[in-house]
Design a protein around this nucleic acid. Structure first.
Length: 570
RNA sequence: UGGGGCGUGGCCAAGCGGAAAGGCACGGGUCUUUGGAACCCGCAUUCGGAGGUUCGAAUCCUCCCGCCCCAGCCA
């Protein structure tokens, strides 16, 4: 290093690599890889792995290969291929020309399999899948050898070639490594290397009808690419002896080191591809990119920035123990980033009409508003002010508790960048619902400062009614009610924990006119409310916003603690 | 009852024999034209438990307890 302390907290993988470099292992080189299977969208858990693999090589001066682990054509689709590459790029990583596929190595893998057969270290088994399972034994009992285990090398060679030629139906034969049917590690009980799948592959088409299993393909792919450190998740720890066995018994160009770390679990969400797929297929969400999904596509649409996701990944650390990271940390990460970048704007979600009785009917003033107090270079803008305004319903209470210091009958507050106003009348409908407020303004407080030094407890956001832009705003909340929805040990399904109120659509929020044309994907802070992102569903006349995350809300905390009900319902 | 891993504050996580970093959360305060942000303070006499070694242990040894993963022709 150069004397500067890295901001990345130390972790055991960095230590291993630093040590390897120090002692000249791999001639001081570091090459990692990110090997997704194109059978689903990438999620925040993958982001952890991507940041780890690319981050490590950035730090130590190496490369990270991007490799599709495409050994199972039955589950893989090009839709996923495209989304995966797009998401990694979005996250901010560049693999240059280092794009690879396990399928690039099918021919080499086949040849090595033949070598293994010739060395009597692999054989064609003709047991059925059920029989293989029976013969495998259990966790506590050793397995039994297949009757085909000792079939002549020549016969296996012939059969394997004919498997490749397409002479047999799916499931009739497999190629197995000949290791140890009594091993306490079940992965070593003659693992299957190849199975017959008469399926066309998105890259190799119909060239193959036998496909290698992960265990046989992965390590050899790593070796072929010169990977030095093959980083994967904990469930592969049991596979490491097998990973090493293949590498030790095949003439590969190197022997990468497999290192396992704990996958990410995030509270109030699920991470398994299977469960995410179910949420999509069963219609609990609108798609893989639904803003409630922990997928990168979902987070992006929700308004998360790549920087926020990367910072989050850095903060959670890397270890070997199973953990459940608090969603609050992810939310903190976006707020932190957006606070610095997002332009501020005023928008009223649940409007209540307010008339400024002493403000001239036809007058319109354009007041100066700061675009981002954290970033002076963002400049200022003009916001129209007029006699009729929209205020947030929640910002008015007829009988306010003492901790509530927003608008109330007889009370004076400040309208941000505008004037002090005082509530002088409350108009209700026949049902007793407050439908309109009448206020007076103090002309001397233009801009928001009282020349007499008078203080006011609250500053409210507002929108001029005649100038308001109508918008649909989608308020998202956590998708699950339970901190650990994946925990189904009580017999429930993770679906039972779905939050029925995870999405609330505000049909006609009122926004200040400056964001009428905001392009999809642009992010704003609606002052006092939260961060919002323009959704691609927006139309020229009506923008659609997704709430990324609320601002920290001390009042909400107080109100909850005091049992104060906030005014809802527009 | 087989094998592999893991147990440090509410949630993450440093630490690797010299005596508990940091972040989030939480609580309090300052400031404030966002009850936002920023800033300040507080928050494990203790590291799953019990023994042992040592002048000294979260770090070494022993035993115990708890949690996770593995019996796909998935990855």
């Amino acid at each position: 290093m150069d004397g500067f302390e890295s901001k990345v907290p130390p972790n055991f993988i960095r230590s291993i690599i630093a040590e390897d470099i120090k002692y000249g292992k791999n001639r001081g080189k570091v090459l990692t890889r990110f090997p997704p299977e194109p059978n689903g969208y990438l999620h925040i858990g993958h982001a952890k792995s991507i940041c780890l693999n690319f981050g490590l090589v950035a730090e130590f001066g190496g490369f990270c290969n991007f490799r599709f682990d495409d050994t199972n054509p039955g589950k893989e689709e090009v839709e996923y291929v495209d989304s995966i590459m797009n998401d990694v790029r979005w996250l901010g990583f560049d693999w240059g020309d280092r794009l690879f596929h396990a399928s690039d190595y099918f021919e080499q893998l086949f040849e090595w399999a033949v070598d293994l057969i010739k060395a009597d270290k692999a054989y064609v088994d003709s047991l059925s899948a059920e029989e293989i399972k029976e013969f495998r034994g259990t966790l506590t009992e050793p397995g039994k050898p297949s009757p085909y285990r000792d079939r002549p090398v020549e016969e296996s060679l012939d059969l394997f070639q004919r498997m490749r030629n397409g002479e047999f139906a799916d499931g009739t034969h497999v190629l197995r490594a000949k290791i140890d049917m009594a091993s306490p590690n079940i992965n070593l009980r003659d693992p299957v290397m190849y199975r017959i799948r008469k399926l066309s592959h998105w890259r190799t088409g119909d060239k193959w009808c036998i496909y290698p299993m992960y265990d046989y393909a992965h390590g050899q792919s790593d070796a072929l690419e010169g990977i030095t450190h093959s980083i994967c998740t904990m469930e592969y720890e049991d596979h490491r002896p097998l990973y090493d066995w293949f590498l030790d018994n095949i003439k590969v160009p190197g022997h990468p080191q497999q290192i396992e770390f704990a996958r990410l679990n995030l509270s109030y969400t699920v991470m398994s591809k299977r469960k995410l797929l179910q949420l999509v297929q069963e219609g609990h969400v609108a798609g893989w990119d639904d803003p409630r999904m922990p997928t990168l596509a979902g987070l992006r649409r929700r308004g998360y920035t790549p920087e926020a996701v990367r910072n989050f990944c850095e903060r959670i650390g890397v270890g070997k123990r199973e953990s459940l990271v608090d969603l609050a940390l992810l939310e903190y990460s976006v707020r932190e980033d957006l606070n610095l970048k997002a332009r501020r704007v005023m928008g009223v979600l649940r409007p209540i009409r307010v008339v400024i009785d002493n403000y001239p009917e036809d007058r319109v003033e354009y007041l100066d508003a700061v675009n981002n107090p954290e970033d002076p270079s963002a400049g200022t803008r003009k916001v129209p002010f007029s006699r009729e305004l929209f205020l947030e319903r929640e910002d008015f209470m007829e009988n306010p508790p003492k901790q509530f210091y927003r608008l109330a009958p007889g009370r004076e507050v400040r309208l941000r960048y505008a004037y002090f106003i005082k509530c002088v009348d409350v108009v209700k409908d026949s049902g007793g619902q407050v439908v309109e407020l009448h206020c007076t303004y103090d002309p001397s407080t233009r801009g928001g400062d009282a020349p007499d030094g008078r203080k006011v407890k609250a500053t409210l956001h507002w929108v001029s009614a005649p100038h308001a832009v109508e918008s649909e705003v989608r308020l998202y909340d956590k998708l699950f009610l339970r901190p650990d929805p994946a925990d189904e040990r009580d017999g429930s399904s993770f679906r039972d924990g779905i939050n029925p109120d995870s999405l609330e659509v505000i049909g006609s929020a009122k926004l200040e006119p400056s964001i009428a044309e905001a392009p999809a994907g642009s992010r704003y802070q609606f002052e006092r409310l939260g961060y919002f992102c323009v959704d691609p569903d927006s139309t020229p006349g009506k923008p659609v916003f997704n709430r990324t995350v609320t601002l920290k809300d001390t009042w909400a905390k107080v109100a909850k603690a005091e049992g104060i009900h906030k005014a809802r319902k527009a």
